[in-house]
Design a protein around this nucleic acid. Structure first.
Length: 578
RNA sequence: GGGGACGUAGAUCAAUUGGUUGGAUCGUCGCCCUGUCACGGCGAAGGCUGCGGGUUCGAGCCCCGUCGUCCCCGCCA
């Protein structure tokens, strides 16, 4: 076959006169009767080839049969386009390849949709023919960006003395956390491996083993429902270190994040990153992953409504709930009755009964109450005040989410701005009403803050953890903690979580045992690599950054996985489907 | 598990209050065309309206079920 001498994206004016060969896909073929233009596309770009009868009438006739997505090799001399024919929208637009010969490497069927960036084909169809969708420059660029980001991560961490170590994919179900994907064992019938939700225990064991700086770009699996930013298998940058405290980890990781944004997106981030305590994040933004680009904050107005003429809120205060408000500055005129109804529907999904606008409830309020609100919320002409009264958690969840929803709707911030911060001092655990016990907020190997050890005895839910998340534009891109390296403290945590000694021993006795053989103080972090690439690429959907993603029902439209298996396979595994 | 939106030529969409023969654009196919680049012109083919049931004289449209896609809540240490 004719082998390419150049890619379809590199030919420029300086190459004019060269004999070249291009390989690629026909992206468009324009037959003018007496002259045929064929654009050839590969991963690097598009180059126009021209079949001119003045050069070879026979060749031109043959080129007339070319169709979109045929695979071709074209040989010829690169020439300048006539001045008026230069295409400024194409990087290769100053030149064209005058075909002197071509080879049809493979014929393509008519594709189910046009392979162009501004395709309007449904995502369903594009997922079924993902290999065609991936031919689009947009997706090719994102996957190239993903590769670059991975390369930056490996480079940075390697320079900082981290070792990439692989950990098992066929492993053991870990405690708490997400639902596991299970893999039946043929050799031990009736037993199962679990795919890792993260290599958490292995990276801690690597610390015990003395690999004081470990990382891995690694697939993780969680059998939970999907979202626009959640896939059942996803990629983490998993990191663990020994002999470092939180400050050291913040420092090294800020360096990594800055290098990612600088080298992959050309954005300089300011260091050090801001820090915000979890409690303050909830108070001011109603969320542990605040998007601070949106200007409005949640304000507590509970005191104003105590015994108020607005009975709904007075009742909320009476029963121990809270009232919070946001002041959406200077946008009252852009918020219709219909918008308010929509906001009401929106907050209902978070368990709130509804949302009140100040305008709507003003008539029930005394002059004093109105004056208090005006001062407290700094109300000016045309400000839109929205209020929710309910139980603490419901108010924070619903009003915090509404804040983000309306921030996006009103485009109340600069889209190019990057807001990055650490959220610190998470609670170690919280009480679960359904399970009637405390549950780890992060995971059961997270170290309590030494200052709060006494609280563990009295009010465990108030004890802070040495845990931290890193948040970019309201999206959690990573989280980690200092771990427990002391067997007694680890046992104490299990006791508080009501994980019995037998249970603990059965499920991760190997870790407990390892902690007794000289475990160094250690801690780490895991970044959601897909989410980082989403932010770098500026896309809202995780499927855009994964080559072969799954639908929201966790199936692959291309391979049709999951699928039935041969009964023989099941028999070998000792599995019966009921 | 719950809520919402959607499903009509190969693709993207339209189709009056439930009413005669279900349209448009892109693509495809044929003919014409020497400077296009989403080429252009003329013409043609292409439909089990996701699937199953029901209501009705009559269903793309209404009802029930089912399958699939997307978004959200729950879930995701």
């Amino acid at each position: 076959m004719l082998k390419r001498t150049h890619t379809c994206g590199e030919l420029r004016a300086k190459d004019i006169g060269k004999e070249v060969v291009l390989n690629g896909w026909v992206s468009s073929a324009r037959d003018h009767g007496g002259l045929v233009f064929v654009n050839i596309r590969d991963r690097y770009g598009v180059t126009q080839t021209v079949f001119d009868p003045a050069n070879s009438p026979k060749l031109m006739e043959a080129a007339k049969s070319l169709r979109s997505e045929d695979v071709v090799a074209v040989k010829g001399k690169l020439r300048a386009r006539p001045g008026s024919q230069i295409n400024k929208d194409m990087p290769t637009g100053e030149t064209e390849l005058l075909a002197g010969g071509f080879e049809l490497l493979n014929r393509a069927e008519v594709p189910p949709f046009e392979v162009v960036d501004d395709t309007n084909a449904s995502e369903e169809l594009r997922l079924k023919y993902r290999y065609l969708d991936l031919r689009r420059p947009h997706l090719q660029n994102i996957l190239a960006l993903r590769h670059k980001a991975a390369d930056i991560v490996r480079g940075y961490l390697s320079r900082h003395n981290f070792l990439e170590v692989e950990t098992p994919v066929l492993t053991k179900s870990t405690p708490e956390g997400a639902r596991d994907y299970l893999v039946p064992s043929r050799i031990s019938k009736g037993k199962f491996y679990a795919l890792p939700q993260s290599p958490q225990l292995f990276k801690q064991l690597l610390m015990v083993a003395g690999f004081d700086r470990y990382f891995q770009i690694v697939k993780c699996f969680r059998d939970e429902d999907l979202r626009a930013d959640r896939q059942p298998e996803f990629t983490q940058i998993d990191i663990e270190t020994s002999f470092l405290d939180r400050e050291d980890i913040y420092n090294i990781m800020e360096g990594l994040v800055c290098e990612l944004w600088k080298n992959a997106a050309g954005v300089e981030l300011k260091r050090p990153f801001d820090r915000l305590a979890y409690s303050e994040a909830i108070e001011r933004y109603g969320s542990d992953r605040p998007d601070r680009r949106i200007p409005w904050e949640l304000q507590d107005a509970t005191a104003v409504f105590k015994g108020s003429g607005f009975k709904a809120f007075a009742g909320v205060v009476e029963s121990g709930g809270i009232i919070k408000a946001i002041n959406i500055k200077n946008r009252a005129d852009k918020f219709s009755r219909k918008d308010l109804d929509a906001a009401g529907e929106f907050v209902k999904s978070y368990g709130a009964k509804g949302v009140a606008s100040l305008k709507g409830i003003e008539k029930f309020l005394s002059d004093k109450e109105k004056a208090e609100l005006k001062t407290k919320l700094d109300i000016k002409e045309n400000d839109l005040i929205l209020l929710i009264g309910d139980k603490l958690k419901v108010v924070n969840d619903s009003l915090g989410s509404l804040r983000v929803e309306l921030g996006r709707k009103f485009e109340a911030f600069d889209n190019k701005k990057i807001d990055i911060l650490w959220v610190t001092d998470f609670p170690l655990m919280e009480y679960d009403e359904k399970e009637k016990r405390h549950m780890s907020l992060h995971h059961p190997f997270t170290s309590p803050n030494p200052d709060d050890l006494k609280l563990l005895e009295t009010e465990p839910a108030k004890a802070r953890a040495l845990a931290y998340d890193i948040v970019v534009n309201g999206s959690e891109i990573g989280g980690g903690s200092i771990r427990i390296h002391n067997r007694e403290i680890q046992q104490k945590i299990f006791d508080l979580l009501k994980i019995s000694r037998e249970e603990a021993k059965k499920r991760f006795g190997f870790l407990l045992e390892a902690l007794t053989y000289g475990a160094p103080p250690h801690g780490g972090i895991a970044f959601g690599f897909d989410r980082i690439v989403m932010l770098l690429a500026g896309t809202e959907n995780i499927r855009d950054v994964i080559a072969f993603p799954k639908t929201t029902s966790a199936s692959c439209l291309m391979t049709e996985a999951p699928s039935d298996v041969d009964p023989v396979q099941l028999k070998e595994l000792g599995i019966k489907i009921s």
